[in-house]
Write a protein that binds this DNA or RNA. Structure first.
Lengths: 226, 226
DNA sequence: TCTTAAGTGTAAAGTATCTTACAAAAGGAT
DNA sequence: ATCCTTTTGTAAGATACTTTACACTTAAGA
């Protein structure tokens, strides 16, 4: 990929806004652009955490597997998100996997070492990264709370609300969330079983609080969904 | 407290190692030393997250309460630990409480604003904070995994191992952990009920894997405790 | 278009863990 | 020493959720 288009590429990431032209040039020189087919793994547990990634197209899920094959999805990422950032904060070896969901993914890769050097030269960038990791931490702790304090049904409803808040499109009073998650995925995101997800969703549909098909969920009224 | 003793005070915190004499002086000028009685709250949910704290004596627990009064303990801190650091990463208002456990606590306070200024002038410090938050994140995610993947018994045993690893003293082949936790506290740390903790601990004692009283736990053999 | 795999719907059985309940022990305070 | 509160021990009952099981539907590939 030509330097020029790489530059354009980087313009899309808010994280790099504060970089001066020189730093941007340096960044383009150390970045590598990649494309991978759907369902492919971008990294796997056990690999060295020496790279970070920036997603420009497609959807990526980050998660872990237990020994007996259960899965936790830690997050589902959309373009412009950074991932694999644990390498920046001292992780040696990946604990999680990153996997392309049902579409081809485009992303760029850079070495943690190079990125750290950039951080050293641009304090603003360091601060942004710190805030970003802080947000991750806040989200992880909230999830912990909801696992301990809330029952499965409530967690699934919370998931619906979060999804709508973060990625929903208003349609009148309703909220439409397009996604590429199976009900098993939703189960893995909420720490419940697939069957529980199915029955909660269907129950909500019967009560006319939501409508859904495989590709999207429509929340009829965010207020009444409790 | 005199500047001199404040300086001595700060020498104990590894976080401040990389500061040059001038920065150390600035730090002593912005730090405030405090003492609070046991069981008192250092901060409460809802307060503004504009201060950070460094514990020099006593034990502090960080946690949250659910609406119906259940408690999660997020961490139990010992001297030299920093806490309240969510203010550095963009938290506006405390979500957690910080509370002195069964002893008087000594700690120093400083304003997030001041600390951020210090971080700007010393990149090493920024990096250390970033690593620290990163560790917190890693721990939170591990806890998430153990909540979803493991049963109550295993989580309690994991707690015992962790406690021994982090704070245990070798006594021959055995590991002694002195603490100030009630079984209710252990329950709140592991996301289980108090009764479950009691019965698991007693069961382990019957199997001669551990011995315990109110103030300490002795792990007879770390290997065989699975 | 047909075939197959993946995803969804529904129900019944099983179970880990929480609740409720109460007694005993330990520790602090007077 | 005595009283009172907190903590610990133990058991039975209740229950939310998982597991198992199978049919049905949808999507994708040949």
């Amino acid at each position: 990929m030509a330097i020029q288009s790489k530059t354009a590429f980087l313009e899309h990431f808010p994280l790099f806004e504060t970089l001066n032209p020189d730093e941007k040039l340096r960044l383009t020189q150390m970045v590598e652009v990649k494309i991978k087919p759907r369902y492919s793994y971008i990294y796997l547990p056990g690999e060295t955490s020496d790279k970070i990634f920036f997603l420009s197209k497609g959807t990526v899920k980050i998660g872990t597997h237990s020994k007996d094959g259960k899965e936790i999805i830690k997050s589902v990422l959309h373009p412009t998100a950074m991932f694999g950032e644990m390498g920046i904060v001292g992780e040696e070896e990946r604990q999680d996997f990153a996997r392309a969901m049902g579409q081809e993914v485009h992303y760029c890769v850079l070495k943690v070492e190079d990125f750290k050097r950039l951080m050293r030269s641009n304090h603003q960038l360091s601060i942004k990264i710190l805030m970003l990791i802080g947000n991750r931490l806040r989200r992880a702790e909230n999830r912990l709370e909801s696992l301990i304090f809330k029952d499965a049904r409530t967690r699934i409803i919370d998931f619906l609300k979060d999804a709508a808040d973060q990625r929903g499109r208003r349609v009148g009073f309703e909220m439409l969330v397009k996604h590429s998650l199976t009900q098993q995925d939703i189960a893995n995101l909420t720490g419940t079983s697939r069957q529980t997800v199915t029955s909660v969703l269907n129950e909500l549909r019967k009560s006319n609080l939501i409508y859904f098909n495989r590709k999207s969920i429509l929340i009829r009224d965010m207020e009444s969904l409790v």
